[in-house]
Design a binder for these strands. Sequence first.
DNA 1: ACCGTGACGTGTC
DNA 2: TGACACGCCACGG
Length: 111
Amino acid sequence: MSYQENIYKVTKAIPKGRVTTYGAIADFLALGSARMVGWALNNCHTFGDVPAHRVVNRKGELTGRLQFPTPTIMQERLEAEGIKVIKHKVVEFEDRFWHPSEDLKQKNFGA
DNA sequence: ACCGTGACGTGTC
DNA sequence: TGACACGCCACGG
């Protein structure tokens, strides 16, 4: 079980219509560095389907959009879930924000 | 083994 | 508030 798989598990656990941050995932998994989350998500295509579009930086900006097959995929998928994106930023980000500890405890994660 | 790089975050200026 | 520097950790050259 690599730490990357944990990152993917958390990412897959993000509720539809909500978003979280690299830092929140790193904090929940005690990785010590949010960069690891970005790095792992950059290679997520090799691990199957991961809703990486729901992970943004601490300001709610879609900083990872350029890593998708096309730069518009991330925004399109978010908007398809009801999340408004303006100027590459999630609208009402603080209200859309979801922290792993908010929900994973009831999903028996890591047990 | 050393150095640079990166889908990040926090602290300063 | 915005720009910059620095710390962070894994990976490739």
